[in-house]
């Protein structure tokens, strides 16, 4: 192995070599990427109509509604995540409702709701919806309404005006919102450790475990962390570039 500083604690690329040749860590990273992509896409899809209504419906109470939307941020992150355990557990609100309706028997609750990949994605989506709604709201708020009037005057239907005018002009907000979710959820470890069980284990959990609860392996942990940092930085640059191009095109 290459070593720049020979000695017991010298710099070595051994941990990088092991990382690149380990299918385990890269598979886990890919699994986390897929989970984060799904969460980000779902969150954007949920947040866009909310932001659209607040920005373009003309309601006078839009700032009050916006405040309601971000109100969960006034409570603890942990509390919001833990609340889902009460809802999703075998004896939780959802299963109890199913028992009550007779759709499930007490001996056969839906177990996949908690300690699963689904639970992690559901909770992450819930936690991040307001984060995404805000940048989209800002993008839609700054939209020049005369463009929509012009589209209408030129014979565009409401759907066409949305697809050809509103959506392209709100893309910087959508991209920003997408990134707001994708970047932190890719390295997420608290939510998976609380509601993920073994199947919801993510790349961020592995980094934490390598530094802490596992027999400390800071070299491998550092490699995993630097790799994540590099990927996130590269993605941010790409998205930023993409966003700028759209801005230019829109203007």
């Amino acid at each position: 192995m290459y070593s720049l500083f020979p000695g017991k604690h010298g710099f070595t690329l051994e941990a990088w070599r092991a990382f690149v040749h380990s299918s385990v860590y890269l598979s886990l990273f890919w699994k986390s990427v897929k989970m984060s992509l799904i969460v980000s896409a779902v969150v954007v899809a949920l947040a866009y109509p909310v932001a659209y209504y607040l920005a373009l419906s003309g309601t006078k109470r839009k700032y009050v509604l916006l405040l309601v939307l971000i109100a969960p941020f006034l409570t603890s992150y942990l509390l919001r995540v833990l609340a889902w355990k009460v809802i999703l557990g075998d004896q939780g609100v959802l299963n109890t409702f199913l028992f009550w309706t007779g759709l499930r028997s007490h001996d056969h609750p839906i177990s996949q709701l908690l300690y699963s990949r689904f639970a992690v994605m559901l909770v992450l989506a819930y936690v991040w919806v307001p984060f995404v709604a805000l940048p989209i709201f800002v993008a839609l708020e700054s939209l020049d309404r005369r463009l929509l009037e012009a589209a209408s005057d030129l014979g565009a239907s409401r759907r066409q005006a949305f697809v050809r005018v509103t959506l392209p002009l709100s893309m910087p907000g959508v991209v920003a919102g997408f990134l707001f979710v994708f970047i932190p959820t890719l390295g997420e470890f608290i939510t998976p450790s609380l509601v993920g069980g073994t199947s919801g284990y993510m790349y961020g959990n592995q980094i934490v475990d390598l530094f802490g609860t596992g027999f400390p392996d800071w070299e491998t942990g550092s490699v995993l962390a630097i790799f994540l940092l590099g990927v996130v930085a590269a993605l941010t640059l790409v998205f930023a570039r993409f966003s700028q191009i759209r801005d230019v095109a829109a203007s």
Partner: peptide, 15 residues
């Protein structure tokens, strides 16, 4: 070989 045991266990969790 505690470090080896730990690495193998971490790999089980990550798998």
């Amino acid at each position: 070989r505690r470090a080896t045991y730990a690495r193998l266990w971490e790999e089980v969790k990550a798998s």
